[in-house]
Simulated assay, not measured.
Amino acid sequence: MKRVVNFWSLLGFISVSVFVATEITAGVAAAVWSISGVLHLGTFPTILLGTLIGIPGLYGIIKSTMMAFEAETDPENN
């Protein structure tokens, strides 16, 4: 079947993507902040930790955005 792409399905897709991306970003930032604070890390180790935690977070954002697009444009959901 053909995907339903109209204003409302795209608005739903964008809304869900922004919400999930915000939550993942806040979780990653909180994790880096707390681990860095507990271990008293300097600037470079904190940046390295942010990169190590941020890459899986970025993967989660991309994957959830793809899933949101598939769900919002699925003909059975409209």
Rank of each mutant, 00 (worst) to 15 (best):
N77E: 00
N6E: 04
T43P: 00
M1I: 11
N6W: 02
S9I: 02
L10E: 13
E23V: 06
L39D: 09
F19Y: 13
S34F: 13
F13N: 01
K2G: 06
I24N: 03
S17L: 01
N6M: 04
E23D: 01
E76Y: 03
V28F: 06
L10T: 10
F69K: 01
V32E: 11
M1P: 00
L49G: 07
G42L: 05
F13E: 06
L49P: 02
L11H: 02
T22H: 12
V32N: 07
I53V: 13
I24L: 13
I24K: 08
V4K: 12
K63W: 10
M1A: 14
L10C: 12
F19T: 12
L10G: 00
A30L: 08
A26D: 04
A26K: 14
M66N: 10
A21V: 03
L48M: 13
T46W: 03
I47V: 15
F19A: 14
A71W: 11
V28P: 01
W8P: 00
E72L: 10
G42W: 11
I62C: 07
A30G: 15
V5K: 03
G54T: 14
I14M: 03
P75L: 11
F44I: 15
A71S: 10
A71R: 10
V38T: 14
I35T: 15
V32S: 10
S64K: 14
L49N: 05
L48A: 15
K2S: 11
V38P: 04
K63P: 00
F69H: 03
T46Y: 01
S9C: 06
